[in-house]
Design a protein around this nucleic acid. Sequence first.
DNA 1: CATCTCTGTAAGTCATAACTTACCGTAAGT
DNA 2: ACTTACGGTAAGTTATGACTTACAGAGATG
Lengths: 103, 103
Amino acid sequence: MTYRDALPALADPTRRKIFERLRHGAKPVGVIAKGLPVSRPAVSQHLKVLKEAGLVDDRAEGTRRVYYIDPNGLADIRRWLDQFWDEALEAFRAEAEKDQEKK
Amino acid sequence: MTYRDALPALADPTRRKIFERLRHGAKPVGVIAKGLPVSRPAVSQHLKVLKEAGLVDDRAEGTRRVYYIDPNGLADIRRWLDQFWDEALEAFRAEAEKDQEKK
DNA sequence: CATCTCTGTAAGTCATAACTTACCGTAAGT
DNA sequence: ACTTACGGTAAGTTATGACTTACAGAGATG
């Protein structure tokens, strides 16, 4: 439900592929799995992880389950990153100067 | 050197703690390790991973090694996330509508 | 209602990566 | 020079998580 789940979820290459496949719109599990180098159950397990991380959501459509990207998980990561951005950038410049002094 | 390394690097809780400790400025390894629930060599190993991911950089200072956050790794992740942001947000609204139709 | 399609779950296997202790090199202090 | 402080690396252990196959349930279709 936060960046603590979302970051590990997106750390796995296969899971990122799945996530990227949903980028242009919702897709059922079978379609997602097609072409991937892993079995369909593996895809189901990955989708579960992504869902628990708030990165995707799903909706029943007959016997199919359609998955789509949930922006909430992305927002969680973004907020966490932004927390570092300004401070880190300034500190980095300061360190760069110190490195130059060494010459 | 890209989000493919940076995301796994920040997926580990211990590594995130280390990274967060550098948020307010550069610190030597010993200081970083103090208070963490893992050994100092473990911290060294984590710092190596963070460095290879472009998330931190270091500088020799006498016998100490001072580490600080490198914004490049953060920027890589940011770019990757932004790639999804707009599209995902719009798609999410569309899906939310479909869910409402179901009622 | 029998069957076929689609998906999730259970159970087990295997690789990886997060740790540990032991050791080595290097720079500073006496 | 000797010792002490600091940190990286090697080697080995262990837990975890990414996969597999087998199975079960729920909805469409004849």
